[in-house]
Design a protein around this nucleic acid. Structure first.
Lengths: 194, 194, 194, 194
DNA sequence: TATGAATGAGCGTTCATTCAT
DNA sequence: TATGAATGAACGCTCATTCAT
């Protein structure tokens, strides 16, 4: 008595998300208009707001889904043994996050949780990314004097930094990979005391 | 005949900036509305846009001015000999950047230059911050296997990361200082190969 | 097998009305939302509409019940011998009708019957009010040159007018009682031809 | 330096009002859509809201203008010497107010002033109507034992009552004129004490 | 009777920015 | 330089009501 109704709900929700993804594929994230989504999906505007916390709420879901796709793929890789490898494995994720300014803004905006209990799907991908990298580093020849988790968080710091700089013309002479290589080499490789 | 007009121009510009700073002091950066600025200053809207590159342009000026105040102070410190010291010297700057989400966003948005030629005032503070830290590190007992400049850029990466995490409830159990301490210790201290 | 179902029906209906009255008591008539009623009562939205002719239908019932309470009380009074008395006896009713703009609107909207056959509960209170006043006037020293019923309808006209003016700041210098006194004196007292 | 700009403002405002009146003439008051007004007038939506307090604000102006047209006409009449005449002179106004339920609602909603100082244009027409009728009554053979102003307010009471009843099916057997005739005869004609 | 997801048309709002004067 | 009316594209939101189950 309860299930069939939930099915309908899920169907509507799925239809809305698929429609949105179709529009995004065609025009990009920044060009998505709520109006177009509901019209294309053949659904009332009120329904849209009953399912998502506005446009931003939908975006959070859609972008998080995409990010998780990349993380799924990353998880399938064996632990990289060189920094070049590590960068190569993480680049698809980074590239997605930097293809559109709007996407990066949404990600930044949702990189935190509103309430302690409910961590949004995008914020979760940040945690997950650290986990993936930490697992890689456990089986790698890199620095072992600090915990793999801490090491992975450091990697994330340089990734975020690299992405932020991507939107700046100042350092566009260097590619993102080059910049990452320099930093991650200094961060990940074991060193002798000077 | 030319001077008095320039004086008037400068006066209008100063009045607008002061008015904006007054509103910011009262309501915060995010609450600033161009409408309110021009009305309070007793100036037409068009005049505002004749003086600044829009609201964002004004914000850049006002925020950069504030950032430089903190950097002035930081420059007066002697080179820190411990990481705690380093953090203590840089904290006022970090705290300002994280008081308001909006401020952090504006700073990130302007952390680079749009065109190569004109590096904006906020982007300049980023360069300046690296310089200040690099100068500190030159006279410090920290890691010497990489250039002081690269080391300083790494510090900046961790600062940005720490700030980004500040707006993320996921890891709010730790204070920003603690988090920074852990990262910077791993980044700055010389290590033996494992 | 039939009774228990009718009981359940009656119980649901009663629960809905009680819930509504509770919300009204707490927030006022205008703030009542169907959503809140059904959620508080633990009933589905559709059920609400199976029991009442929409929100307005419920309001009609609830408001009419309240109006009848006042009329019950008014009926217990002996026929007033002065206009002051008459006003005093009718004031509780008037005061209720003017506490909320929304209530007055609902009352006005339902002061007649949509179809001839079914005179709504609020429309009935209008008829009843005229009857009560007419009965009073029969035993009073007031004007006798026109029928008591017409006289009573006139009283109602002035009551409605006074209420309408209550929501009009134009004439707020006078109290509603004073205004009524003036009008009813002119309407009810016998006069000599000029 | 100030005038030409005010002219443009006035022109835009006039264009908006004229467009609205055109749409109303074609489709009625209740069918007016803000969207259509701004599109037809070739004006931005923001401009509309810069000129009027939303749709209701525009409606107030447009309806008040129409009401004043009827009052202008009424003012040109000589003082009516019979109640039939009086009714005939006031009927166009009454008929306009009762042609559309929506119009009557707007009028009721604006029959009062929000703040003491600023009495809205519709509220003003109520005052004006009393004035017009009072002037009539000064030169009429009607009751003189109470002030013309009070007498006129009473007339308004019966007019409002008649209009309110117009939207009720209960008393549709009688025409509005007949009902008014009965009441106004009882109200306006001098009487002998019983 | 009961359910509750879906409807839907339109309003108000925002506010940095432009441009003719 | 200064003026300030006008722009404009979307978004959020409302919330009583319907209808298939």
């Amino acid at each position: 008595m309860l299930k069939p109704i939930q099915d309908r709900t899920r169907a509507t929700r799925a239809k809305l998300i698929e429609t949105a993804q179709g529009i995004i594929a065609a025009k990009g994230y920044g060009a998505l208009r709520v109006e177009e989504v509901v019209q294309t999906a053949g659904v009332a505007k009120g329904t849209f707001f009953a399912h998502f916390a506005g446009k931003d709420g939908l975006m959070e879901l859609v972008i998080a889904a995409r990010l998780n796709t990349f993380l799924d793929e990353a998880e399938r890789w064996p632990a990289p043994q060189t920094i070049d490898d590590l960068i190569a494995h993480i680049m698809p994720l980074i590239q997605f996050m930097t293809t559109e300014r709007y996407v990066f803004d949404v990600i930044l905006r949702h990189s935190g949780a509103a309430a302690r209990e409910e961590i949004g799907p995008i914020a979760q991908t940040f945690t997950r990314q650290v986990d993936v990298v930490a697992r890689w580093l456990a089986d790698s020849p890199f620095r072992k004097d600090i915990s793999g988790h801490l090491l992975a968080e450091g990697v994330q710091a340089f990734l975020v930094q690299a992405m932020a700089l991507h939107f700046c013309a100042v350092s566009n002479s260097e590619t993102m990979e080059d910049r990452l290589l320099t930093y991650l080499d200094a961060w990940l490789n074991p060193r002798v005391a000077s």
